[in-house]
Amino acid sequence: MTTESELSGVDLARQAPLAAREAAKKNSATRQKPKRRTTTAVRRDGREPLGLGSAISMMMAERGMAAPAAGGSVLADFDTILTAVVPELAGRVQAVAFDAETGSLDVAPDLPAAGTQLRWSAPKLVAAANERVRGANVRALHVLAPPP
């Protein structure tokens, strides 16, 4: 049996991390963590800071302006765009939805093989949709599962 005064190098190496952990626990218990601010900064004239998108939306609403609705045009012209890019899929794929905020166009093929071909030609379809419909800003083509 060894006593405190007779600790060898191995025993000292085992004791050092334990002592360091205990010291860290004591130091962290006495030190207070900084609290996060949950309130927003209010300027002297009562206005709160806004993000750029919110500020532009408010400005457009104040002036009676409206953003162009390109979503309907993408859905309406999808058959023409599909025929121009991938003519063999004409009549086999239907555009289901277009989300103008995210730029995602959802399409539904009638067969899994048509879905695979759509995924291969997705970059061409996105480029053709953006070229054909001005302001559409299609960024992604989501191919939905065909019906069973």
Rank of each mutant, 00 (worst) to 15 (best):
P148L: 11
A29H: 07
E62S: 14
E22S: 00
A67I: 13
K33S: 11
A66W: 06
V85W: 03
G115K: 00
L89Q: 01
P147K: 03
D99R: 04
T40A: 13
D110E: 09
L125C: 04
R31I: 15
V86P: 00
G91L: 06
A108N: 06
A95C: 09
A95M: 07
R139N: 06
V85S: 03
P112A: 05
D45P: 05
P49A: 09
R119Q: 07
N27I: 14
P148Q: 12
F78C: 06
V10A: 14
Q117V: 07
L141N: 01
P68Q: 05
K35M: 08
D77S: 13
G115S: 02
N130S: 03
M58L: 14
M59F: 15
Q94I: 15
R21L: 15
K26W: 06
K33V: 15
G53N: 13
A76H: 10
S28M: 06
E131W: 00
M58H: 03
A90I: 09
L82A: 04
L50Q: 14
G46V: 04
R36W: 08
G53Q: 11
P17H: 06
E101V: 04
L75Y: 00
L75C: 02
A136D: 01
L52I: 15
L50W: 09
N27Q: 07
M59I: 13
P34C: 09
L89V: 02
T39Y: 10
L118A: 02
L105R: 01
S57Y: 04
F98Q: 04
A129E: 05
M58F: 07
R92Y: 11
